[in-house]
């Protein structure tokens, strides 16, 4: 009985992240539009877009291979699994032991691997541009993420997100290293989600695109699945930051329905605040030059390294 309930809660989490992800995108677009003194589309617009895309026929380039057709599903699946393993409204869910933070990072790495390959499949220059830039940024963003994980794990004594979240609730401490890790994680999140100083999700300029360039040849249901995966990724990163640095209000495994509900409400609140702050930052900054991004993300790597070093050093006293 307990097992079935545990699996049920895990299932709810999986469905919930999937259901909320497009809404999060809609919310960020709405906030951005309001900040730019525009009305903006409805928050529900991404749902309508997805529906419209899946109903359309998919147009495939003549020389598209099986990889091009299957990659969207693999990208979606790996991202979804990763998103489902991040504690959102509740910590310590049944399957959260399946993968720790390093494995979640690597799962996103798998999604990126397939996306970059899909970008190269048709053989247009734009796909190549996107893939090559994406892999360049990833070469620094991934180690930065690992160093941030190190920092967090050294404080909390675990790379398991549930354990980390519970540790942070129980021993809420202000640590220099955690501050550094937070800044680093924000930089990584902006990079990974193709947000403004690194990439522009709203751009129409093919030559400046990163994420959009890779999916330029996708259409119909394939595009819908990839867009959904991108939305899931944004949700994942905001949830991740909330889970590590602001885990309060999160339900525990043995909490009742009420506790879970409180968890859900606070989680949605955190998502809204997180995405609002992100959009605020985006509005105030221009996109970087491509070769300034490695310095930006390299900064995150160094912050992670610095945080780890500080912890390694302070352990001795």
């Amino acid at each position: 009985m307990g097992l079935i309930l545990a699996i049920l809660v895990q299932g709810i989490q999986m469905v919930l992240v999937l259901a909320l992800a497009p809404g999060l995108i809609g919310f960020t677009r709405k906030v951005k539009a309001r900040l730019l003194r525009r009305q903006g589309p409805s928050i529900l617009q991404p749902y309508r877009d997805l529906l419209r895309l899946v109903r359309k026929e998919a147009v495939l380039a003549d020389n598209a291979s099986w990889l091009f057709r299957n990659a969207p599903y693999l990208i979606f699946a790996t991202t979804w699994v990763a998103a489902a393993l991040v504690p959102t409204f509740a910590a310590g869910l049944h399957f959260s032991w399946a993968a720790d933070l390093i494995a979640i990072t690597a799962l996103l790495g798998s999604a990126r691997f397939f996306l970059a390959l899909a970008g190269m499949d048709i053989g247009t220059s734009f796909g190549g541009i996107g893939s090559s830039r994406e892999m360049l940024f990833a070469t620094l963003a991934e180690p930065a993420m690992i160093m941030i994980v190190f920092t967090v794990a050294l404080v909390a004594g675990s790379t398991q997100l549930s354990t980390v979240a519970e540790f942070m609730v129980d021993h809420s401490t202000l640590r220099v290293s955690l501050g550094l890790a937070l800044i680093g994680l924000i930089i990584v999140a902006l990079t990974e989600n193709a947000r403004v100083p690194v990439d522009n999700p709203a751009t129409h300029l093919e030559l400046t695109m990163v994420h959009e360039a890779m999916i330029l040849e996708y259409s119909g249901r394939h595009l819908a699945v990839i867009e959904l995966a991108a939305a899931l990724k944004l949700l994942l990163y905001i949830s991740l930051i909330a889970c590590i640095f602001a885990p309060w209000g999160m339900a525990r495994q043995d909490d009742g329905v009420l506790g879970m509900l409180v968890g859900v409400v606070t989680w949605v609140g955190k998502l809204a605040i997180g995405s609002f702050l992100m959009v605020l930052f985006e509005t105030a900054i221009a996109k970087m030059r491509v070769f300034r991004v490695p310095e930006f993300v390299g900064g995150a790597l160094m912050l992670g390294l610095l945080g780890t070093l500080l912890l390694f050093v302070s352990r001795s006293f």
Partner: peptide
Amino acid sequence: RFSLDAAHLLAGGMVLVSFMMLY
């Protein structure tokens, strides 16, 4: 403990801002 932590955090914040200056 908290006052110690807060002091460290602020001092560490200065190091962080110094890095931002370097950048």
